[in-house]
Simulated scan of single mutants.
Amino acid sequence: MRIVHVVAAVIVREGRFLLVRKHGTRAFMQVGGKPEPGEEPLAALVRECAEEIGLVVDPAGVVPLGRFSAPAANEPDHVVVADAFTVELPAGFEPEPRAELAELVWLDPADPVTTHPVAALSVDLLAHARS
């Protein structure tokens, strides 16, 4: 198995979690992505939030959640290892799918039924964030 390193933003509003789907994929996942060569995880998170949903993140307000791993949703025979962070949305800010994103959804973790396929890593992150 090959390893893919990423950063992931756990974004919650009114008890619902923001998940996004990239063009040409099925699974919904956290905002985030692969760090550029030499880029620190927090810097990658700030960059990815701006690129993907137009959010300007204040690094001082970001809370590290830890490192998580799961089978990669979009790359067969790969494992994704993510540095995950909690990111707050400013009041009144409405995220919009940008760059490689096709759409976004707000999922309620209390609702056991969803019609959206969710990446394994995101399932784990949502469970961790709820606990």
Rank of each mutant, 00 (worst) to 15 (best):
V20M: 06
R26E: 10
A27H: 11
A27M: 12
F28V: 09
M29D: 13
M29Q: 12
Q30V: 05
Q30W: 05
V31Y: 01
G32W: 00
G33H: 04
G33P: 03
K34L: 11
P35H: 04
P35K: 02
P37E: 07
E39M: 05
E39R: 01
E39A: 03
E40P: 03
P41V: 02
L42F: 00
L42I: 08
A44N: 04
L45T: 05
V46G: 05
R47C: 05
E48S: 09
E48D: 03
C49T: 04
C49L: 02
A50S: 15
E51W: 00
E51P: 00
E52T: 02
E52F: 00
E52D: 12
I53D: 10
G54E: 03
G54Q: 06
V56K: 09
V56Y: 00
D58V: 02
D58I: 00
D58Y: 01
P59H: 00
G61Y: 00
V62H: 01
V63H: 07
V63W: 02
P64G: 10
L65F: 04
L65T: 06
F68C: 13
S69H: 13
S69Q: 14
A70K: 15
P71R: 15
N74D: 13
N74K: 11
P76T: 09
D77N: 12
H78S: 05
V79T: 10
V79D: 09
V81S: 08
V81D: 06
A82F: 06
A82I: 09
A84D: 07
V87T: 09
E88F: 00
E88T: 11
P90I: 01
G92Q: 07
G92T: 08
F93G: 07
F93L: 04
P97F: 03
R98H: 13
A99R: 10
L101M: 06
L101G: 03
A102V: 00
E103Q: 05
E103C: 05
W106R: 10
L107H: 12
D108F: 14
A110P: 06
P112S: 13
V113H: 08
T114C: 11
T114M: 08
T115P: 06
H116F: 15
P117H: 15
V118A: 08
L121N: 14
L121E: 15
L121I: 15
V123F: 11
D124H: 13
D124L: 13
L125R: 06
L126F: 14
L126A: 14
L126P: 03
A127K: 13
H128F: 14
R130T: 15
